[in-house]
């Protein structure tokens, strides 16, 4: 479970608050996709949930550890370590004086579940893999780290369409099987509609659309894009008014 109560956040030298009283509650295993224009506060919200930023006011209640996948794969992995070492590192919460390759067979099974043949690179430095392959490993690391809350910040945005689809299928399957409470930021409206149980749209630091169940499943991509552009047009109009004044 994840509960966010009236969270606000401002940054120095930025006139408007980035988050203006966010309220959001996700039940255990709920998969929520987050859409919104650049600067709407999506990533800031995720950073507050992960503990990287502190909220100015309000509170965040988490029922377990948080694991996350960020857009920049270098931040979430260690390219100089092997694939095995990276995955072991993400799984080992209580280290022991034992050789880390005792996890080898288990980890090979996990990598096989990605279905992209990465198991043959298990003892190779992660840095030699392509961006997409590395992001797949980063997602596998986050999903299997034992955290109950999963945060995904545009984790498929830099990938080709085939790899994007594969990784989204893997993410959705893992979230369902492990009952991870998940918040996924994406700019891909199709993915936002296709995956997850819930969709929220953020605009200027607020949640302006919150769709669940039938509301979400019945929505067409054209309607979602229409909503998105409506808020963006409002924003542009507001900027225009400010400039005139």
């Amino acid at each position: 479970m994840l509960r966010i109560n009236n969270v606000t956040k401002s940054f120095p030298r930025v006139f408007e608050p980035v988050l203006k009283g966010i309220n959001l509650s996700l039940r255990e295993g709920e998969f929520c996709t987050v859409v919104g224009a650049n600067g709407s506060g999506k990533s800031t919200l995720l950073k507050i949930i992960s503990g990287e930023y502190r909220a100015d006011s309000g509170e965040v209640k988490r029922n377990g550890d948080v694991s996350q996948v960020v857009q920049d794969v270098n931040k979430g992995t260690i390219p100089a370590m092997t694939v095995l070492e990276n995955i072991v590192l993400s799984r080992t919460k209580t280290p022991r004086f034992a050789f880390y390759w005792r996890h080898l067979n288990d980890i090979i099974d996990k990598i096989r579940s990605l279905n992209i043949g990465l198991e043959k690179f298990i003892d190779q430095p992660l840095g030699i893999l392509s961006g997409g392959q590395r992001q797949a490993i980063a997602t596998l690391m986050a999903v299997n780290s034992g955290g109950k809350i999963l945060l995904l910040d545009e984790h498929t945005s830099a990938l080709d369409p085939k790899m994007q689809k594969m990784l989204m299928e893997y993410t959705a399957r893992s979230v369902r099987e492990l009952r991870l409470t998940t918040l996924m930021i994406t700019h891909n409206m199709e993915d936002a509609l296709k995956y997850g149980d819930r969709l929220i749209m953020m605009h200027s630091g607020r949640i302006v659309v919150d769709l669940k169940g039938c509301e979400k499943s019945g929505l067409k991509i054209s309607s979602l894009l229409e909503m998105f552009h409506k808020f963006e047009d409002q924003n542009l109009a507001a900027i225009g008014t400010e400039n005139v004044n």
Binding site: I78, M81, E85, V88, L89, T92, P95, R96, F97, A98, F99, Y100, W101
Partner: peptide, 11 residues
Amino acid sequence: LRTDFGLRFRA
């Protein structure tokens, strides 16, 4: 360096 602790040390 090849144990769990060593891995964390290198990280």
